[in-house]
Write a protein that binds this DNA or RNA. Structure first.
Lengths: 199, 199
DNA sequence: TACATTTGCTTAACGGTGTTAGATTATTTT
DNA sequence: AAAATAATCTAACACCGTTAAGCAAATGTA
């Protein structure tokens, strides 16, 4: 009786449908417009159905957050693989991070709480740690001092992250930002931080 | 009959009471716990009363935002006045900005949409432009090139702001950040950006 | 003083939210 | 075909922001 697997597949489809519907609503109408009933409408069910796939709304958002980190991780890895020089790898990776923030603006807001109240416990998501590891390793390759101190990597990683996340946040919340200045700050900061890695 | 003035004063008191109550609730229970009914309870009225002082909840939040910018502006000005050297003034000002973010965490979240969905139209608040002007002028003092190009000031201002706001945001949303590393990044970045002002 | 009017405030409601329990329908098992 | 199980919906709860209607006390007017 292979119907068990078919039902399983159907369940996974509706689960995926819920997540997709949620993301579509958010992309078209913003985070404020997202409600359980509206998701249910989109998948042609009633709201309580969603609770058979997710414990509650926050659980659903956590899953979306996870997906976001998975996508971001892939983009960063791909950017890294597109270059051979460690410095250029690192720059490409942060540029991929930057592009993700604007291409998947809603996901980025959710993942990092930009103009939106993101879920607790998003700390210690394994998917999030993957991107951290990618960046840390890429920075590590640029450290010449031996033995390579862990502190320096952490310090530089957070410095990169601060300036880029900060610039993204400002762009997503404040209106009237200049794209040319964005690029100048972005490239300038990345280059400057790379140069100071071995001070 | 001076009762008109007394009534006026009472009205201003309750208006202030509403704002204070809102801030107290947020400080004790977080932004999610803030509701019109809870504010009304705190000031021993019922919810509709609030609508005689503010058009709606967003209007109330905008007023709180304004207060936040006013406080922040004062702190930054005070920091500037505490130093005489332009470079040290600028550093002191950004350190004041940093301290405000953690001393008035809830206000900062509201003003800049950190882990909270902040109100629209917070662009073009005159109170917000004051701090921008303070920083711009302080940077201007450090530019030696003549004529001082407006671009450079804008660029450097956003660079400062990005790294500091980014670091603040990360600290406010992510758990388990290291205070020593924070200070290293903060001071390091400020010094580094100051050094590059006249490149 | 007596009546009318305004003011201050509350109660009640509307439509929305996330969420849960109970009833109902459909499917599968016996 | 009957019983058991699964899938789904309806209805409700408690909350939210917000508005309209009503009440009661204070004020103005005759």
């Amino acid at each position: 009786m292979g119907s068990k697997e078919r039902i399983q597949r159907q369940k996974e489809d509706t689960r995926k449908g819920i997540l997709d519907a949620a993301l579509q609503i958010v992309k078209h109408e913003g985070w404020n417009a997202l409600s359980m009933r509206k998701i249910a409408d989109a998948i042609e069910y009633t709201a309580p159905i969603i609770y058979e796939y997710f414990p509650n709304k926050e659980g659903l958002l956590i899953e979306l957050t996870r997906q976001g980190y998975a996508i971001l991780g892939k983009k960063i890895k791909k950017a890294q693989d597109s270059e051979t020089e460690p410095a250029q790898q690192l720059e490409a990776m942060w540029m991929a991070y930057w592009q993700f923030a604007f291409n998947c603006k809603e996901m980025y807001q959710l993942m990092y709480g930009v103009d939106m109240n993101c879920c607790e416990l998003k700390k210690s998501l394994p998917e999030a740690e993957y991107t951290t590891k990618l960046f840390s390793d890429a920075i590590d390759k640029l450290v010449t001092k031996e033995p390579r101190p862990e502190d320096i990597i952490c310090l530089k990683y957070y410095t990169f992250w601060s300036v880029i996340h900060g610039l993204i946040s400002i762009n997503l919340t404040q209106k009237g930002t200049n794209e040319e200045i964005n690029q100048q700050i972005l490239r300038g900061a990345i280059q400057a931080i790379i140069r100071t890695i071995n001070d």
